[in-house]
Design a protein around this nucleic acid. Structure first.
Length: 599
DNA sequence: ATTAGGG
DNA sequence: CCCTAAT
């Protein structure tokens, strides 16, 4: 007998096929195709790829073999990067490294790695010479304990020639143009979805991580997405976690099986897909002045013609910096392991997607609809004032929130990783763009960790400040992004995800899905309504539902956070009531059936 | 891999 | 959000 289950939405649940889990189709994400940050992703994917490769090639090195876990806490910090001071060579810009106070004879030697000056290290270097990833240490890291002078980390990007030309009549994130960008991928990847109601809430400024497709109330009977092959797909993991906890960092010493590690990393970072796709793709956005070349970078090729209106603004992204990262490594760690650590930290940072910020004279331009000329960037001489930032995808409003107090360490941890982690881009002079293309270079300098820094030395990290921000004396593990110790502590393995409050839109989608699917099918809920929100795992959805039920059960005065419309809360309670009752019925039936069998 | 529930 | 136990 078929029991028809109906909810007030009128949906016939019996029409929803529920295959055994083992036969359920695995679903590919479509989300990435609609990512308007493609160019930035590509750029960084290319970079991350280089870093990864470099790391892999050197990863036969071992972790420290000393039993004493001396650690170097390396803090890679972003600082001011919006100037374009020329420089002669990177060697001339290695940071100072002074030792920690000798009196602090702890096992922790903390170094703060700050950016090199934001100079165009590769200024006027031929494109072909821009490459070579090298993480150079003037001294062996092991020796940096108390005499850290001249310890500098250089991560140099190779190969990729990243150029960017943007006609000034095109606004950077003009939705109308963005849509052009998206169309190509949407058509290719969404296919059968196009006829369904699609909800893509990807706000440019805020809450842009809410991206999912919501299906129409018709509840398409074959709502399970079809697997699609060949479309672009960037997914850190099925669960949207950049670091699937302990699985990312298994020790490679034992077997030295790089391939195994590489596979793991592919899972961890989804990098391989990136590279594979960027390498083989040559997508032209000819009318928009952007060309993604086969190397994954941005090139100025084929976009030399000026648009009808106004002059072209030719830009070349020359370098950018790694934002603040905390890395903890043993003193006995090898250089190779340090490379790997830096790479992993950077990859983790980028893993969540990035956004582009545009800065004019150091100030962020928020109006995406203004043209460049309207923004005052039509003149060549103004280009010096233009800067780009790469912002974490989760950053709503990437302001610097570096706290001056250390009262809330865990909050600071998340903040420094998620909100301070802007990666500014340095633009070279427009005159050089044709001749030299663009090189992307990572460079940091090591600066001492000082826990006893004076208050007036503590300057907020801001885009206008070149100040080296001291690292508060936090627990190293609190900020450790990448574990490297021989015996990784749990705290080193796990970086708590940043809190991402559900938007009302998301709540609505969740409620809607649960209304139809019930409270015990979170995987289906995920697939149905949050498949493109990689950061929302089905556990997240389950948890959110739990809190929603709780929220709906308490008085409005007791509720906190962004208010959820009462209407939604009512639906939450209704659905919760319905499904809990429904489950009871089912259980009852099962029990009855079981009893019948027994009898 | 999912689900359920406590922390 | 995290973690774990149980499927």
């Amino acid at each position: 007998m078929v029991v028809k289950r109906r909810l007030n939405c009128g949906f016939d649940f019996s029409s929803v096929p529920k295959a055994p889990r083992s036969t359920r189709m695995k679903v590919s994400s479509k989300r990435d195709d609609v990512d308007s940050q493609l160019t930035a992703f590509d750029l960084l994917a290319s970079l991350a790829g280089k870093l990864l490769e470099e790391s892999e090639s050197s990863s036969t090195s071992t972790y420290g073999d000393s039993q004493e876990d001396h650690h170097l806490v390396v803090n890679i910090k972003q600082e001011n990067v919006y100037n374009n001071k020329p420089c002669k060579s990177e060697l001339s810009h290695q940071g100072n490294l002074s030792s920690k106070s000798p009196s602090e004879n702890t096992s922790e030697t903390c170094l703060q790695v700050s950016s090199l000056e934001n100079d165009c290290v590769l200024d006027k270097a031929p494109v072909s010479d821009c490459g070579k990833i090298a993480l150079g240490l003037k001294q062996p890291l092991v020796g940096c304990g108390n005499k850290n002078e001249d310890c500098a980390v250089h991560v140099e990007q190779g190969e990729a020639t990243n150029g960017l030309m943007i006609p000034d009549t095109i606004s950077l994130k003009d939705p109308s143009h963005e849509s052009v960008h998206l169309d190509g991928v949407l058509n290719g990847s969404l296919g059968g979805y196009m006829n369904q109601s699609k909800l893509v809430c990807r706000d440019d400024d805020d809450e842009n991580y809410c991206k999912f497709f919501k299906f129409s109330d018709k509840c398409n009977k074959s709502y399970r997405p079809m697997t699609r092959v060949g479309h672009r797909r960037i997914k850190k993991s099925k669960y949207g976690r950049a670091f699937p906890r302990s699985k990312c960092f298994e020790d490679t010493r034992t077997d030295g099986c790089l391939k195994a590690l590489y596979r793991k990393r592919k899972l961890c970072y989804g990098y391989n897909q990136w590279k594979h796709e960027t390498v083989h793709r040559k997508r032209r956005l000819s009318d928009k002045g952007l060309v993604v070349t086969s190397d994954g970078g941005l090139s100025s090729e084929s976009v030399t013609n000026s648009p009808q209106k106004g002059e072209s603004v030719k830009l070349s992204i020359k370098s950018f910096r790694i934002p603040e990262l905390f890395i903890e490594v043993p003193e006995t760690a090898t250089v190779g392991s340090l490379k790997r650590t830096v790479m992993e930290a950077v990859t983790a940072l980028l893993g969540d997607g990035i956004h582009i910020g545009v800065l004019v004279q150091g100030k962020k331009v928020r109006d995406d609809n203004n043209t460049l000329s309207q923004t005052g960037l039509s003149c060549r001489e103004n280009l010096d004032n233009l800067g780009f930032t790469l912002e974490p995808g989760s950053s709503k409003n990437p302001v610097n929130i570096m706290p001056t107090d250390s009262t809330n360490l865990s909050e600071r941890s998340a903040a420094s990783l998620e909100l301070d982690s802007r990666i500014p881009l340095c633009l070279q002079d427009a005159d050089h763009v044709i001749n030299y293309g663009t090189c992307v270079e990572y460079s940091q300098e090591l600066v001492p960790y000082q826990s006893d820094i004076t208050a007036d030395e503590q300057q907020p990290l801001s885009s206008d400040s070149r100040a080296i921000v001291p690292v508060p004396p936090l627990e190293p593990e609190a900020l450790a992004v990448v574990p490297l110790s021989e015996k990784p502590k749990r705290t080193e393995l796990s970086q708590r995800r940043t809190r991402r409050p559900f938007s009302v839109t998301e709540v609505e989608a969740l409620v809607h899905a649960v209304e139809e699917l019930g409270t015990g099918r979170w995987r289906d809920v995920k697939l149905r309504s949050f498949d493109d929100a990689s950061h929302r795992t089905y556990v997240d959805l389950k948890d959110k539902w739990k809190t929603l039920v709780h929220t709906a059960s308490i008085s409005p005065q007791q509720r906190r956070g962004q208010p959820v419309p009462q209407e939604l809360l009512d639906r939450v309670l209704a659905a919760h009531r319905y499904w809990s009752q429904h489950q009871v019925k089912q259980n009852g039936k099962l029990q009855a059936a079981a009893m019948m069998v027994v009898e």
